[in-house]
Write a protein that binds this DNA or RNA. Structure first.
Lengths: 129, 129
DNA sequence: ATTTATGCAAACGATTTGCAATAGG
DNA sequence: CCTATTGCAAATCGTTTGCATAAAT
């Protein structure tokens, strides 16, 4: 019957790779990393599976940095810092008020599904230079 | 002497238009709106001036929504809501704790220049359908 | 006169997509 | 077998850029 999902080694490998990387990689970075282990892997497959994982909630989007979408295998809500000098993305421990989401939803009559808090600036390394 | 900025009617018009729009428009939307008043205006000029305004801090980027960067003529720090159904962007009154930025900066040894808080979900209109 | 701003079209780069071939169940 | 997945390459689409011309000072 149509619509069923099949098992795929490459799909598994892509998800595992994203989850193992703490750099919040772009599709191209995931592709380049994986190619070391799986020489026959195409960029299209990485894009297709990242889109799938995003829909399934298995990965989160950190947003677009320097024209490239960056992904996060950690889907728990947390904050990010983006270095506008080198493009590095790091996790930040700075949770939003737990009630803010519901508060905003009820005040504006909207349905809030997620939020994204990002700080921008210069990372420790770039600050020194 | 080189490096000086010259006055330009089109540049003025682009900035005025962005400031008058509350829809957080993309470059293309600004272009289409302005073309009604200024038939000889090129998209490249809109892109060039938006980039300039962003560098000068005269406009802010709301981030990329459905592949298009969205801009905001209101550069005071505030929160946004993005409807993932229709792509609408609206302002939200939900300020971050004033100390959070400095707090994060000192805790991580980074320089924080700005931040962006965005909620995602379905707007009032899309919630109904 | 000198330098910046613009229009136009070509170039670019990330992402998406069509299709024939391959792998999963 | 039958359907989903992949590789490949071409197509898309937002954005950037080079260059000759126009506008600003």
């Amino acid at each position: 019957m149509p619509g069923e999902k099949k098992h795929s080694k490459k799909r598994e490998a892509i998800l595992a790779k994203i989850r193992s990387m703490k750099t919040h990689p772009s599709a191209i970075t995931v592709y380049e990393e994986l190619r070391k282990e799986i020489p026959d892997l195409s960029l299209g497959t990485v894009y297709r599976n990242l889109a799938l994982f995003r829909e399934e909630g298995k990965v989160a989007s950190v947003g677009v940095v320097n024209g490239q979408e960056r992904f996060d295998g950690n889907t728990t809500e947390h904050t990010h810092f983006v270095c506008t000098h080198c493009g590095d993305v790091m996790d930040i421990d700075a949770p939003l008020d737990a009630h803010l989401k519901e508060d905003v939803a009820s005040r504006y009559g909207i349905a809030v599904h997620s939020h994204r808090l990002t700080f921008f600036g210069a990372c420790a390394r770039c600050v020194r230079s």
